[in-house]
Each structure stands twice: as C-alpha cells, then as structure tokens.
C-alpha cells in the first residue's frame, strides 16, 4: 500500500483528475461560462502533467542565483518554459472565449447552448 503513494502516482491522480473533471464539465454542461471554466480546469491538469515530467526528486529550481549550486542539482528547465508558454496561451484563449460569450449573450439573451439557434447539441 505504501509504495502506491509515490510522487508519480500523486501527479497522475491530480492531473488526470483535473483533465477528466474539466472534460466532464465540457461534455455535460450547457452553460457557456461553465464550458469555458471546464476547459480551464482541463488545461490546468495538462499543465501539471507537463511541468512535473521535468521534476527530479530532491532537486531544486534551475536558477543559479545562489552561489554553490551545481547544474547536477537542478531539475529540467525545458518543461517549465513550455508550461510558461502554455499558461499564457491558455489565458489568451480564455479571454477570447469569454469575450465571445459576452457577445453571444448580448445577441441571444441566453447562456444556454441548446437554446441558441444554429448551435445544436
């Protein structure tokens, strides 16, 4: 039992859980704002998975500011840089999606996807 609780398993549980929760919201909900929130939750799960692939147990952030730190004591910086990009892009996508939701609400007066004509689900 105790060897089930490893860092890998915790990361898998957190990231897969968030991805699945987000996708479940996207599939099952009809409210447009909630759809955007679901996408955001799923994206957070993906980011956790990506950033933790570079983690190495017992090692520190790849910053050489403190003297005496060696390169062999550091985690992989590449996934962190990738996730930085992913977070920024995710922010842009969310902002644009919410702007679209605002315009749709002004146009149709509802946030329910199934009531908006031309969008069937």
């Amino acid at each position: 039992m105790s060897n089930l609780i490893t860092i890998e398993n915790i990361v898998y549980l957190a990231s897969f859980g968030l991805i699945l929760i987000g996708l479940f919201i996207v599939f099952s909900d009809k409210n447009l704002v909630k759809l955007v929130i679901g996408l955001d939750i799923a994206e957070t799960g993906v980011n956790i998975l990506l950033v933790s692939t570079g983690y190495i147990q017992g090692k520190t952030a790849p910053i050489f500011s403190r003297t005496g730190l060696k390169a062999s004591q550091m985690v992989d910086p590449v996934p962190q840089a990738l996730v930085l990009t992913a977070i920024v892009i995710g922010f842009g996508v969310t902002a644009l999606a919410l702007a679209l939701v605002v315009r749709l609400y002004q146009k149709t007066g509802t946030l329910d996807v199934s009531e908006i004509r031309g969008l069937k689900w």
Binding site: T6, E8, S52, G54, I56, V75, D76, P77, V78, P79
Partner: peptide, 15 residues
C-alpha cells in the same frame, strides 16, 4: 517520469 530516476531529458541536461 524523471521524478524518481536520475536521468533527465538530454536537452534539459545540456541546457
């Protein structure tokens, strides 16, 4: 995962 092992991706090691 790299989490428990010693090996990093080769690009990360180089950088």
């Amino acid at each position: 995962f790299a989490a428990t092992g010693e090996a990093k991706g080769s690009v990360g090691v180089q950088i």
